[in-house]
Amino acid sequence: MARVARVAPAAPRLLPAALLLLLLVAAGQRAAGAPVVAELRCQCLQTLQGIHFKNIQSVKVTPPGPHCAQTEVIAQLKSGQEACLNPAAPMVKKIIDKMLNKGSSN
């Protein structure tokens, strides 16, 4: 009788190599400046119509994207707290305009 050599399936050996390759590709994209989304959901569940300009330290405007379908305006207050503002409110539009002009005048 002829002996048949058993060959172990290749899949178990390829799995760690494929996983390593996937991790290297992901790390390369991250290092190349691909945006990293910190939150995969909207941060603002409720918004304010406005807040007094003197209480605001900075404003961050996040455009719609895969994390959230709406524009989000988050004001960092001088007290250290954050407040979500309604981007469609007239007062908020004025605040954003003031902050943009303040940043360009420095």
Results as ranks from 00 to 15, higher is better:
45 L>A: 06
104 S>L: 09
45 L>W: 09
82 E>C: 06
28 G>Y: 05
42 C>L: 06
21 L>F: 11
28 G>L: 08
42 C>F: 06
93 K>W: 09
55 N>K: 14
17 A>M: 11
101 N>G: 07
67 H>R: 06
73 V>G: 03
11 A>V: 09
100 L>H: 13
58 S>H: 11
6 R>M: 10
30 R>M: 01
83 A>S: 01
38 A>C: 14
19 L>K: 00
74 I>V: 13
88 A>S: 08
13 R>V: 05
55 N>E: 15
86 N>L: 03
84 C>Y: 01
13 R>C: 00
70 Q>D: 10
9 P>V: 02
33 G>H: 11
25 V>H: 08
3 R>E: 11
77 L>V: 06
78 K>T: 12
48 L>W: 01
104 S>E: 06
33 G>S: 05
84 C>R: 00
67 H>C: 00
10 A>C: 09
69 A>V: 11
12 P>T: 02
72 E>R: 01
97 D>N: 07
27 A>R: 10
65 G>I: 04
56 I>P: 06
11 A>D: 01
9 P>W: 02
2 A>E: 11
104 S>H: 10
104 S>V: 08
29 Q>V: 14
73 V>E: 01
72 E>Y: 03
62 T>Q: 10
87 P>L: 04
72 E>M: 00
58 S>C: 08
31 A>E: 07
103 G>Q: 13
87 P>C: 06
62 T>P: 02
10 A>L: 09
38 A>V: 12
4 V>A: 12
16 P>Q: 05
47 T>W: 00
103 G>C: 13
38 A>Y: 10
20 L>E: 09
24 L>D: 05
28 G>H: 09
17 A>I: 04
28 G>C: 00
46 Q>W: 00
19 L>M: 04
90 P>D: 07
103 G>K: 14
95 I>A: 07
91 M>A: 15
46 Q>C: 01
47 T>P: 01
48 L>M: 14
36 V>F: 15
81 Q>H: 13
22 L>A: 15
30 R>S: 10
1 M>C: 15
7 V>Y: 12
15 L>P: 02
75 A>R: 04
40 L>I: 12
105 S>P: 05
101 N>K: 15
93 K>P: 13
1 M>G: 15
85 L>N: 00
86 N>G: 02
5 A>H: 09
76 Q>L: 14
58 S>I: 05
80 G>V: 09
25 V>F: 02
98 K>D: 14
43 Q>K: 02
34 A>E: 12
68 C>E: 02
82 E>K: 13
29 Q>C: 13
13 R>S: 08
48 L>N: 03
29 Q>D: 07
82 E>Q: 15
65 G>L: 08
64 P>E: 03
38 A>N: 05
65 G>C: 03
24 L>A: 14
5 A>I: 14
81 Q>Y: 05
50 G>M: 08
106 N>K: 15
71 T>C: 01
15 L>V: 11
82 E>H: 08
83 A>M: 03
39 E>T: 07
65 G>F: 11
51 I>L: 08
13 R>D: 06
84 C>L: 00
73 V>K: 04
105 S>G: 12
104 S>R: 12
38 A>W: 11
86 N>Q: 02
49 Q>C: 03
41 R>E: 11
106 N>P: 10
21 L>C: 14
19 L>V: 02
66 P>G: 12
13 R>L: 15
105 S>K: 14
49 Q>F: 06
12 P>Y: 03
18 A>K: 01
52 H>Q: 11
4 V>W: 09
10 A>M: 03
